[in-house]
Design a protein around this nucleic acid. Sequence first.
DNA 1: TTGTTTTTTGCATATTTATTCATTTATTTT
DNA 2: AAAATAAATGAATAAATATGCAAAAAACAA
Lengths: 159, 159
Amino acid sequence: MQKTKRLLAIEKIIAEENISSQDILLKKLKGKGIICTQATLSRNLRQIGAGRIPDGKGGYRYLMSDIPRSYRKITGKLQVLPAIQEIIDAKGLMVIRTLPGNASSTAYYIDNSGRFEIAGTIAGDDTILVIPRDGITIPQVHSCLEIVLPGLHDKVKNK
Amino acid sequence: MQKTKRLLAIEKIIAEENISSQDILLKKLKGKGIICTQATLSRNLRQIGAGRIPDGKGGYRYLMSDIPRSYRKITGKLQVLPAIQEIIDAKGLMVIRTLPGNASSTAYYIDNSGRFEIAGTIAGDDTILVIPRDGITIPQVHSCLEIVLPGLHDKVKNK
DNA sequence: TTGTTTTTTGCATATTTATTCATTTATTTT
DNA sequence: AAAATAAATGAATAAATATGCAAAAAACAA
């Protein structure tokens, strides 16, 4: 999925560099082989919750707004990702299967990602039910999870 | 000072309401008897660190960005303001005199306001030295303190 | 597969926001 | 106080961002 890749690249770039306009970001993406138009970028920035705020030095920069950004503060991603075995879409919800005993910590990680898209999770021993918010589609949850856990969809295929 | 009043009004409005554009904010201000142009508003929003971020519902809203906003989380403003007795500009710095024994708590409050403009503070028993960042002028620090402690300049005159 | 529906995208443009420049207002200095 | 300097402001406009619409791509169903 080309879009997911772009969303991730955008998040990464604005976290690491001072990006003051979409045009500049557009060129940075181009440098990474990711081509799109300003229109798409504007939409994507909204989708991931990135805004343009004063940088305190007389200029502006793009940053993730609070809620989506919070996942960065959470440690343990490296433990979480390897535990995930399978992702299953089901009735507008999503089921994630993990290694035995890992559901709880993984669910905690997802909960605390602060992503708007996810209303909440319920975890058993090796199974997590991810409940998207009203109006959020399954593809949106996939994009969202790919942001929370980069590389997730490369690792596990949706069954 | 008309500007300080406007800055405060802007912070208040965007904290309390979903404001999606400067034009809308312009009208809200007008409703409170505060008249200015969009150009001024744009500058003021940058000055107070307010940015336009996705609201998670497909639209946008203005919000204070993290750092300047943090002062809202701090309690004790009501104890701090009455303790302040005098403000003195000095050598590009600022000295605040407080009631005896109150410098430390007041300085703590200012420190934790998270305002970009202030590099730091040093407090004795009844005296605080406020050190602005490079490039920040004394008038900017005054505006800044008026935001951190609304009503400050009505209460104490700069000597 | 093929047809159907949904999502994504670019183009062109509308909307919104930032800035330049000239003027006014406030502040500081002498 | 008057002169000099700095800050704030508006009008006009430049720059940047968002969006309507049509086309293309992707996801889905039969």
